[in-house]
Design a protein around this nucleic acid. Structure first.
Lengths: 199, 199
DNA sequence: CGCTTTTTCTACCATTTGGTAAGTCTTGGT
DNA sequence: ACCAAGACTTACCAAATGGTAGAAAAAGCG
């Protein structure tokens, strides 16, 4: 019927939507299929099991996030404000694909079946970010603190803000764009004041 | 058998634990009952339905949190650092009962069945905090920004940090106590720098 | 003790769930 | 035209799920 891997993509998209809102356990394959105008077995054909579907969705999301971040970390122009770039990049993802961070939030919960997989996936990226920060600290361009701590803190803040955006959006609450800009400013301010060495 | 409402308390405790780790949908009444050495119908006797159980657990948790916070907001000694008191208080709750904030995180997800209830429960507290902040802004003791925004931001940061603590703890990761102190400092720093008017 | 009320249990049930088996239909290559 | 591989479906199933009905203890009380 569908010549290309079109249905597979559609399933992934809807699954992301469902997982990040009603959660993994709250998502039934039947409902998912019905929402797609498809039979449940089609889903199980493309992804072996429900768990397999979750893994696929997760891999996809992590890939998008990683690419978006690596682009910034890679950037060879050494003089730009890397922190601002990072924040801007993450917020762009959060605004364009809030569901993605919603999935992270869902999956990073203690007791989540996919938590270890997420850890493996994000591991390299985290390590790289940490070693970069440590390098900056050594060079005196960043205040010396526990890099991992700062990273985790920033991460949770961003995800928290992003999911809040989504919550507000689903709740039909008014403006979303302007506040998010403000939040970016706040987060930036936060990171700068807690990272810049000159006190 | 149990003369007082002892079993009811036990059910509530285990339910909180289960809801905040494996989630609402991930919790089955049978498993819950088995973990308590009890039959499922006993649970349904005390709380009419699974949803009723969730509501009860939620009400309990919100009550604890509210009391802990109101104590600070009420504090009549006007010269203490209120922000530090707040942060300290919240972190105490997060450390002593991390499951409680885990529940908040679970329940405040978009699409959660208990989200509206949570909103109603927390509403008054939020409004009070906001009006307090606005008062401080008027008096020039706090930089003028969107109070609601700051509150939501701080809230998500705290819950994020708290759930991270729990994640680390379940992952068996080393030290927890010392880092949490550092985090409290960081959060404090964050709030101060983004709230104090003197720039 | 006897009676009532509260608490807990056994026995079922309808529905939903993820998953298996095996078929049908479509498409592309030769 | 034929056939093999891919894509999607119908038919089913065993287990788990939240919930109902009613019996059986247990506790409180005169």
């Amino acid at each position: 019927m569908a010549p290309r891997g079109e249905t597979k993509e559609r399933i992934l998209a809807k699954a992301l939507e469902s997982f990040s809102t009603v959660g993994y356990d709250g998502t039934s394959l039947d409902d998912l299929a019905e929402a797609l105008g498809i039979r449940k077995q089609t889903i199980l054909y493309h992804f072996v099991s429900k768990r397999g579907l979750l893994n696929a969705v997760l891999d996809d999301s992590v890939k998008v996030l990683t690419e978006s971040l690596e682009e910034v970390l890679d950037a060879s122009n050494p003089h730009r404000d890397r922190i601002e770039d990072l924040v801007r990049s993450v917020f762009r993802v959060a605004l364009e694909q809030p569901l993605l961070l919603g999935l992270l939030r869902e999956v990073s919960r203690p007791g989540s079946p996919a938590a270890p997989r997420l850890k493996n996936q994000m591991g390299p990226l985290m390590e790289r970010a940490i070693s970069w920060m440590e390098g900056e600290m050594e060079a005196g361009r960043m205040r010396k603190t526990d890099a991992q701590l700062v990273l985790l803190s920033a991460y949770s803040t961003v995800v928290g803000l992003a999911t809040e955006i989504e919550i507000l959006r689903t709740a039909g609450v008014e403006r979303v764009l302007r506040p998010s800009a403000q939040r970016r400013q706040e987060l930036l301010h936060f990171l700068r004041t807690s990272l810049t060495p000159s006190e």
